[in-house]
Every structure is written in C-alpha cells, then in structure tokens.
Design a protein around this nucleic acid. Structure first.
Lengths: 349, 349
DNA sequence: CGTGACAGCTGTAACGTTTCAGTATATTCC
DNA sequence: GGAATATACTGAAACGTTACAGCTGTCACG
C-alpha cells in the first residue's frame, strides 16, 4: 500500500499543472481534506486549513474548471448575448468592458454569444440554457413582452436584461431612464423656443421605444409644443435612409424646428440630412441627441447632448447576474440610470 | 445483469440532458460504440453509424463540453485578449463580430479576456496558457518584439496576432497594410498640391507605428514633399490632447497643409483643432484619415478617408487560429489586407 | 480443418472535482 | 467507566467523455 501510494504520487508530482492530488501528496493529506480546506469548510482544523492554503498558493494551484464543471454543473461563465447587426458599436465595446471590470476578480469568464438578423433571438438563449453553457446570461434589446426573459425565468437560470420588460414578471435589469431623457430633451428645446418637435425613435418593439415615445409625448403637452411625426425611421435604419428621410422631412412646409435623436450615429445622419436641405443647425433647427462617448460636440458644436454610460450598464448588469447567482432576490437587483441633463457646448470649448 | 442494466438505463432515460449513456441505451449499443459512431470512426459499421447519428439528432444530443474538456483537454474556446483602455471602440465591436461569424458553425465559443493599463500585457496570456483555458488565442496591439507571441510560440499554443511581429519567428497574423495606407495618403495629398505634411501616428511601440511612419517617409521623399513633425501625440492620446496640440501646431508659422490620421476618433479631434486655429478644412489643409465605419464623411464632407475593415480582420484571425488548431502550418495562415485607396466624398453625396 | 486476419463491437480506466458515508481519536456527560 | 458526541480526517463513487485493450464471430487461405 505504501508502495502504491508512492508510485501514484510521483506521477502527481511531475511538472504538470498541480491538482488536488498534487496538493494531497505534498501536504500528506487526503484529496477530500484538501478540497474542503481550500473552501474553508468548517470541519477542517484551522492549522491544516492554513497549511493547505499556503502550499496551494505557493505552487500556484488553480482548480481545473472542467473538473468542477463536470462534477457540479457550475460553469463560472457569464454569457453576453448580442445581435450582430443592430447593436450600437459603442454599446458592444463599453458593455463588454463594464462586464469584465466587475468579473475581473471573480472566477468568471465572459463569453459572447451572437445571433444574427435571420435568427430567432430566443435561439442563442435556448442554446445556452439547453447546453448549460453559462451560469448567468445578459441580454439586450429587451422587449416589453420578452420571450427570452420568460424562458429563462421558467428554466430558473439567472439573467439580467438591459432594458425593462412589462410582463408582470420580476427579474434583474439595468435601464437608462429614456422617458426622462425624452422629456428633458423636449423641455430643453422648448426653452430654446422650439415648438414643432420630431423624434427619431429607438427600434419599434423594444421596451425603450415606448419609454422614449411616452416621455416625448408627455413633455410635449406639458410645454405645449407639437409633434411633427417622423415615423419612417428609427435608429436601427441605415445612415443613408435616415439622412435622406431627414432631408425630405426638412424640405416640407411644416418642418420641425427641433429634433430629438436616440443615438449618436443616427444624429450624424440627421445633421447631414438637415444640411442637405439647406438648413443650419442651431439657427433653423436644434437637435438633442443621446450619446455614449463624448464625440458629438466635435462633430457640430451646436449639438445638444445627453450622455448614456454603457460601461456603467455593463457593470450593473454583471453585478446583477452575479448577485442572482449568489442567491440575492431578483427584485433587489434592478437599477435605473438617470440622465444627467442636456449638455450644450460653447464654441470656445 | 439484465436487471442491473435496466435500472441504470431507466435513470439514463429520465428527461435530463441526453448523454452517451442515453444514446447507448436507446440504440442498444455500448457507450464506446456510440462515441465512435458519432465521430465517424472507421471501425463502426456504416448502418450502425447512421442509426446512432439519426437517434442523436432526433433527441438533440449535444456532447457535454466539460466531459470532453476534462478527458481530452480540448476546450473548444477561442480567447480574444483586449486592452480595456486603448482599443478603438469600433475595433472591439467589429473584430468580435468577425470572429463570431467564423466560429458560428463550429463548436467554438468566444471568450473575451481583458487586461488594463496597469497590467503587463503578458498576464492575461499567461493566465490562459497556464490554466489551459483556450485552444487558441487572438491578440491585438502587436509589437515588433512581442513577448506574448514569443511566449505562446514556446508553449506551443495556437494563436494569431492582429499586426505583424518582427522577431524572425513565424506565426499566423492578419494585418492591414499601413505602409501602403500612409504612402497612398501622402501621394493623394501631394496630388492635391499639398507639400508640408504631418502624421498623427499609431501608438509608439506597436508594429504598425513603424509601418505607418515608413510608408509616410518613403512616399514623402518620392513625391518631394516635406514633413512637419508632430510627435507630441498619437491616436492613443485623449481627444482633448489631440485637439489642443493640433490647434497649437496649426497656429505655427510653418504649419502643415496636409495631415494624415491613423484613426477616425483622432481625426475628429484633429479637425476640431484645425478649426480652433481658425483654419478651414479643404482650403487651408487637407486631412486623410483611416476609418472603420463610414461616418467621417458625415462629419466633414471634405475629409478624405481610407477604409479599414475590422470585421474582416476578426474573421481572418479566427480562421487563422482555427487553421492552426486544425494542423495547418502557421506560416500559411498569414494575411495582409490592402487599402482600397483614398476616398473623397462630393458634397452632393 | 486449423490458423490468421479482420470487422465490429464492448468494458474499464482515467481526466479533476465534490459529495456521501464513513473511521479513528479525543472529549464530555451522567 | 461506559456511552454518546464532536472533531478531524479519509476512500469511494460519480459527473460525461475518450483511449486502450480485448472480445466475438466471420471469412479466406493453405
């Protein structure tokens, strides 16, 4: 028996990656004891525990993810589900950084699960759940009645949504207060004397479309301004489409003297359209736009902006998912980010 | 024995995720046979093979990643290593989509491994290799003498770099021909009669810094134009810094009449700086800029652009890594993307 | 008819981890 | 002094997969 033991442990001592067996040999303990000592189980003596942890640190022991995952089902993976056609560029980049920031000192890895225009958005989620590929999921482009959220809720897999749902179901989310954004934008434009306002909306069908439209409508009647309907485009449309349709709009007899845009890229096209129609920003029309990086004021200093922080969104979403995985109540993991107000830049900036 | 078998297989037939055991029971074969049948091993009868594969498809069998990984060490993971501070926004987004596009119909997952300013860029790579977390790695911000490439080459882990190295070591890469970009930009500006050119470089130390500078210098002497040194900024600097230093530069007696910019975000700042100095784009100075999304011409129609396709880069890099994993020679997995020429936009566009 | 080759299949072990059901020794209680 | 209890540890089994060695039956060959 002693001989056997030695043979086995010689193997274990080779310069391969250390495992529990390696640690067990080095400390003279059993594999079970080592395993429990590393997770601070109460039935292990204080000194043994310290000894094991010291040795583990010394030789750089790292639990084998596959072993853990096979045994426990725990993947230590968070998956971010992204649409490969319609996400905003800055959104992808910033939200990823926000998420990684939070999971950096956890054992979690971030995997990006894409889906394309042609696919059912439920597909990637179903894949993740069915294959048990992640402990938690983050989704964007949330809809009021979102089948993905419903599905994950049924299956009991922790997730968080960027944007709220409206199905009477409770789950973690992070959202930007787009109602407040639109309302503040309207008020600001009204303050500048603008009375005929148009809105370039988020994609119809997503939750924040409604929020934005409602904020717009409520503030319009509050300040007594009127809407110039502009339903032919949303920020999901191509730059070209937004540009030409904005130009068409601005050439009409009754054209808006104020435009509110829900995304920076769309704003570039809107401004181009305005100028195509021979009008001047700041004189003939004012534009308030959301932006996620501080670039629009370089584009046209007359632009009025409201900042939305996607990195913060990523962090909050990651925190929510981890919280749910950690056993917190889903209802306690919801957050709403308030717009910081409309910002104007002076020429001298 | 028959009883035993039945008991075991009843378990296996429960509505849990199907495993090889489930398939073995359903087909009446052994687990080994099923395993081999699914991977088209030659020693399995043609009919058996078809039968197993049919049943597997029917019940939606998916191999358990943890099982495979534990047994074989194969992770089916590609890791994209990103700097969380200095990557271009569009780069992150597009390269991710490029990669996911290629791995979409493979068993591979994409994990994003971040590192920050304060960290040694080797850290994340070392982590990946030591923990065996990925079958292949993609890195960006490649340096002529890149410790990460050297390290991975030593350890024998497949990888691809965005940008070339210059260490006499051969490995897969994808690169944009920044030498050609800079040279074409110089020639184009010279063609417009511009004779005093400045260059806003990539980050000093990265491989494409040298390529760009060389292309710039060679073309300068070719066309007989001169350089106005502008070494105080690179595209890694903040928008503010680039803007103010450009303004300073443009207020000097000997100021450039042509500027070449290696990134779109920097270009916004450059133009702002030019205008801060009271000069007009297209009249006093022309600017040629790289861009990765078609937005700069909306910003100022006078801007001259060269397009770099990061989504393509992502796809190529993914293909390279998969190729290397699949046994192809690293030297055969290198690609260089040529600039498509300087593009000008007419006002009417 | 015995031998060898071969096709087609199977059982066992192992990857690294955690959980379950213990065991041995010391401590407490009546 | 004996039983109960607590403390500190241990071996075996299992998660799902693949590699290895081996088994059985068929067929051709001499």
């Amino acid at each position: 028996m002693d001989k056997e033991r030695k043979a086995k442990d010689d193997e274990a001592t080779a310069q391969e990656r250390p495992t529990l067996k390696t640690l067990a040999f080095m400390t003279g303990l059993g594999v079970t004891t080592v395993s429990r000592a590393l997770k601070d189980a109460p039935e292990i003596g204080a000194e043994t525990r310290r000894r094991v942890q010291l040795v583990a640190k010394q030789i750089g022991y790292r639990p084998n993810r596959a072993g853990v995952r096979l045994r426990t089902g725990k993947t230590n993976v968070i998956s971010l589900v992204l649409n490969t056609e319609h996400e905003l560029m800055s959104f992808v980049s910033d939200i990823i950084y926000g998420v990684t920031e939070v999971i950096a000192d956890t054992p979690y890895h971030l995997i990006v699960t894409p889906y394309s225009r042609s696919q059912d958005p439920l597909d990637p989620v179903r894949y993740l759940v069915e294959t048990g590929s992640a402990d938690g999921v983050i989704i964007s482009r949330t809809q009021p009645n979102d089948p993905r959220a419903r599905y994950m809720l049924e299956r009991g897999i922790p997730f968080a949504t960027h944007g709220r749902t409206d199905m009477g179901l409770v789950h973690p989310y992070h959202d930007f207060n787009n109602y407040a954004f639109a309302a503040e934008a309207v008020r600001h434009l009204a303050g500048l004397g603008r009375r005929r306002l148009a809105l370039v909306t988020p994609p119809v069908g997503l939750s924040y479309y409604r929020h934005t439209v409602n904020g717009f409508a409520d503030a319009l009647s509050e300040v007594g301004a009127s809407e110039v309907p502009f339903n032919t485009v949303s920020i999901d449309h191509s730059i070209e489409q937004i540009r030409t349709r904005t130009a068409q709009l601005m050439r009409r007899d009754i054209r808006p003297d104020g435009i509110i845009s829900s995304a920076a890229a769309a704003t570039l096209a809107i401004v181009a359209g305005i100028e195509d129609a021979g009008l001047k920003l700041g004189r003939d029309v004012d534009v308030v736009s959301k932006q996620s990086s501080e670039l629009l004021h370089l584009f046209r200093h007359e632009l009025l902006v409201v900042n939305e922080d996607f990195r913060l969104a990523g962090s909050e979403l990651a925190r929510s998912v981890l919280g749910w995985i950690g056993g917190a109540a889903p209802g306690s993991l919801q957050s709403l980010s308030e717009p910081k107000g409309v910002v104007a830049y002076r020429r001298s900036d």
